[in-house]
Simulated assay, not measured.
Amino acid sequence: METTSRRSANAPIRTTRIRSGTPTKSPLIFTRDLPGPMSMRRLCDMGILIPLGHESAFLSSDARTLFGRAAIASALVPTGSAACASLAAWIWNGGTFPDTIDVISRSHYRAPIYGRLIRVYNRAVPPDHLRRMGRLLVTSPLRTACDLACDEPSDQDADIRSTILKLLHRNKLTPSFCLKMLDDNPRWPGHAIGVAIFTDMKATFDSWNDHD
């Protein structure tokens, strides 16, 4: 279970070890690796590959495991950046690959990577809000839930809430953990939006517990 206690800025980043036997080669597959573009389309249509752009994809079997998804993200996230928001949620939850590659970075990236635009969050992130999987840095499930909730509302609000609830359930967290993290960080961009969402979720969680 994750806690939100204040730590020194020098707190170590928690590491999730990748099991031995995990491939170290790139998990991405390119058209040049296949007999031709028709082969790529055919394998995508069959569900064997999941496309990124017109000329790149990854194995759907890799996307079924946490460490497989981390390896895929590691090949996409620029050096010195950390996966966050929708990309981090995909790493933790699985499901449909996001439209953008969301990263925490002080750099700006204008060119797409393998057909996907990079969306940059230029924010200071305490080390205890990050996890390391091999070479990849990714925001923790709790931090990821807070980032998603604090983003501007969109026409996909119901999908975002569903993603957040899945993050909380999978990691044995509750909205109270999220409210505590936001309370500890009052200058978080979108703070009021996140507090409203988790307050609403907390009422639902409390109602469920009352009926247990």
Rank of each mutant, 00 (worst) to 15 (best):
P186W: 11
M1F: 02
Y114A: 06
R41T: 12
D206W: 05
R69K: 00
K202I: 00
L52D: 07
S107W: 08
R132Y: 04
V138R: 07
L87S: 02
L34K: 01
G194N: 07
P51W: 02
P175Y: 05
A73N: 05
R187F: 02
S5N: 07
N10G: 10
R32I: 02
T139Y: 10
I113A: 06
P141H: 08
V195D: 00
G190Q: 01
T163A: 14
R110S: 10
I29A: 06
T139K: 10
R123L: 14
S176H: 02
K180I: 02
A11W: 12
V77H: 11
D62G: 00
A145Y: 02
I104E: 08
F177Q: 05
E152H: 12
H169V: 02
R32L: 06
S39T: 11
A203V: 10
R19F: 12
P127L: 01
D147K: 03
A149E: 06
A73W: 01
I101S: 03
L34V: 03
A124I: 05
R187N: 07
W208F: 09
A57R: 14
N122C: 10
R131D: 07
N185M: 05
S154D: 14
K25F: 13
E152I: 08
L165W: 03
R14S: 12
R110L: 10
L173M: 15
A192C: 00
W92Y: 09
F67D: 13
T204I: 15
G36L: 05
P189D: 09
L173C: 04
N185I: 01
T16Y: 12
Q156S: 07
S154T: 15
R19L: 13
A73L: 09
K180N: 10
S140F: 09
F205L: 04
P12M: 00
S39A: 13
A75F: 10
T22L: 00
T204M: 12
R143W: 01
T4K: 07
E152T: 13
S86V: 04
G190P: 03
Y109T: 07
P153K: 08
K25S: 13
S8A: 15
G115W: 11
I113E: 01
L130I: 00
N122L: 03
W208Y: 12
R6D: 02
I48P: 00
